[in-house]
Design a protein around this nucleic acid. Structure first.
Ligand SMILES: [Mn+2]
Ligand SMILES: [Mn+2]
Ligand SMILES: [Mn+2]
Ligand SMILES: [Mn+2]
Lengths: 232, 232
DNA sequence: CCGCAGGTTTAGCCGCGTCTCAATTTGAGA
DNA sequence: TCTCAAATTGAGACGCGGCTAAACCTGCGG
């Protein structure tokens, strides 16, 4: 007989974790999770995704009527949060401690988070001072599965006059992060919405202190991945 | 078509690296590498080892006539040294930076070294100050495949009167390392062979400065895994 | 010098996670 | 209601890295 889950410290197979994490992320972004969308997300054929949905249903990690949408069960959510915690702590570690760049961190964090034990993750967590957000501003679930409720708002949904601080850059796209770096925009910066140009035009924002900050035009795609925590 | 070596950054399959590393280690210890001994080393059935030997021969990583012994080719040695470098640097990192214990480091280093990229390994190497030996005293191959020639001698082979410094503990057995720790014996310590008791008796050694050091009796099994660099 | 035990290889299988290609279901428009 | 394209599922395969069982060398002891 083949020994099950031999090296992984009693963790589910990697593919299971990958799919559960993807489903969690898609739900978080408000996307509907179907065979096709999930397959696209993971760059896998629909039949692979279909087979995994069946498997996840059998394991009671999702609810899924055939030909319909999938939702994580409570168990599924808990698993997703464990996976996400590992991933975000490792991202933090690579960037803070090993000076990784935005473009290097994705791949490495993906691979390492598959191999790293809970022990490793908890050690680097201590070493980083038990952070609550990763370098993208993504919240880090606690080891007992609590996710700090952020109460933040997408820049793209705000009206002129809104003022807040940048707390999160969604999706971690290296190009976006690089772009922000180049313009000196970082997490924690004060951002003021000056105006919304119509017809898909940019959002004009001031980054920095009330009168001094630089003014930037932010297109809809960028505005859709930046979250602010509003003042007051 | 199935994409080959997708996530691993152009590395050979893990099993190939595992076997090559095992063959290197066995040769280093003077063991002959046959289907059976290799299978025992890797806790695998002889038929698995046999299949892999064929595969390694086809890849020209070993020389192997059927029913005979296997030897690494130059290419095989180079691969082994790359694998060993990764492994020893990660061990060093876990112990020095993340305060891993002797009993925890084996498993974690094994898993992480499979996933870690060259970039990761080179980053931690810098961070550790380009070490030449790992915490067991095992030499770390350089990134261009040179192995610092140690010129050390197994304690078990020395005669009374020999004096040297402990530079290596072979095999990294946690029990041995724990035992040494408890007695305050560590890498770099001065060791003087006082006498060899006959009939499989212990080696009497002084650990520490000429007259002050504590005297220990070292059995043959322990003497077989400790290497000294001799004075002069 | 012959036979046989034991080491070695081969044959056939499994589970994983992927693929391709075919069959099936669905629901929206005619 | 019927039809049909698109979404979904299913069937069959593959490479990996194991396993078991059987066939096959080989060299040592009689
Ligand atoms: Mn993952
Ligand atoms: Mn992140
Ligand atoms: Mn290895
Ligand atoms: Mn070591």
């Amino acid at each position: 007989m083949q020994e099950r889950a031999k090296e992984s410290g009693g963790r589910p197979p990697q593919a299971v974790e990958d799919y559960v994490k993807a489903i969690y992320g898609m739900s978080e972004r408000g996307l509907s999770v179907t065979t096709t969308t999930l397959a696209a997300e993971l760059r896998v054929t629909p039949s692979s995704a279909s087979a995994m949905l069946t498997r996840l249903r059998d394991a009671e990690l999702i609810v899924h009527r055939p030909y319909s949408q999938a939702t994580l069960t409570d168990t599924g959510v808990r698993l997703a949060l464990r996976v996400i915690r590992r991933r975000r702590l490792i991202e933090s570690f690579l960037i803070e401690t090993l000076a990784y760049g935005w473009d290097e961190v994705e791949r490495e964090a993906e691979l390492l988070s598959r191999a790293a034990s809970e022990l490793f993750v908890e050690r680097i967590c201590e070493r980083l001072g038990n952070p609550v957000r990763d370098p993208h501003g993504d919240p880090i679930p606690s080891s007992d599965g609590e996710l700090p409720a952020p109460g933040s708002h997408l820049l793209g949904t705000l009206e002129a006059g809104a003022i807040g601080r940048l707390v999160r850059v969604w999706n971690g796209d290296p190009e976006v992060l690089q772009y922000l770096d180049e313009r000196g925009i970082g997490l924690g910066d004060r951002i003021e919405v000056l105006s919304r140009e119509p017809f898909g035009g940019p959002l004009m924002v001031r980054v920095g202190e009330p009168k001094e900050g630089r003014v930037h035009g932010v297109g809809p795609e960028l505005a859709a991945v930046l979250s602010l925590e509003l003042e007051q």
